[in-house]
Amino acid sequence: MADVQTGTRRAAGPRDTVWREPAGIGQTRRARPEVVRVASKAIRKSAAIVLLLALWEVLPRLEVFDPVFVPPLSENLAAWYDLLLSGQLLEHFQASLTRSLAGFGLAIVLAIPLGLLIGWYTPVADLLMPLLELFRNTSAVALLPVFILVLGLGETSKITFVLYACSWPILLNTVSGVKTVEPLLIKSARSMGLGPIRLFQKVILPAAVPTIFTGVRLAGAYSILVLLFAEMVGAKAGLGYLIQDSQSSFRITDMYAGIITISVLGLLFNLLLLTVERRFSTWRT
């Protein structure tokens, strides 16, 4: 986000200069650096990734890395393509995505209302906050064995696990979003005769939306992260299972194919949520 902002600010600079200069030579003289600048920026931004990919291809071939454990990138991509054609990749991808989205969706549906309740009603906060503090500081990962013990190895335990992990950022951000609404806005709305319900609906809620959405975005990242872990511990399908299973049966290129898929998925998911978040908080400066 910050990068984008500095980007636009920088882009405005030279245009200002053009504006003040008489048209003609000045513009063409400035136009070329503009193209060069955009290109050089694109290069700068992707350089590290391109370098990593190149090294991944070259170093194993030069046997700097053992190509058995770190095969060259092209071989991993070939394995990825094979998995795609055989339909296996889609199957694992679907299994993971379904669990992630189910847990994530449930977390949104449960944690937002609960957070609103805790943020708004002090008695509810007094009652629940100590309990929440306790659980919040208990790592979700530490609780996975308990989930499996109680709910078995099936879908329920995995979705519940994701739900649990995703709930915290949403819940805590919702509570703080409600609690940190500018008091003057509440005062102003109260002065116009708004009762508690309409105050909540017209002031508290819209004011808290950007903060809530930041929590939702964090939860989105968690949903993939923790699910992967759960799938590695015990599953018959899913990208985590694919990675774990390929490793233990020594299909190393398949393992990397799984890893590549998961990081691209995570990236896309975060990008999607960022876009939605920006739409919700255009008014925030």
């Binding site: 806005l185 005062k187 102003s188 709305a189 116009m192 005769g193 002031v203 008014w283």
Partner: peptide
């Protein structure tokens, strides 16, 4: 009607929607 020193406008509402707020109320 109150007018505060720090304006107290609702930042998620446009100028028009801010004025509409009182009318909704």
């Amino acid at each position: 009607g109150i007018v505060f020193q720090q304006y107290a406008l609702f930042p998620w509402r446009t100028a028009l929607a801010n004025v509409v707020f009182g009318l909704e109320a």
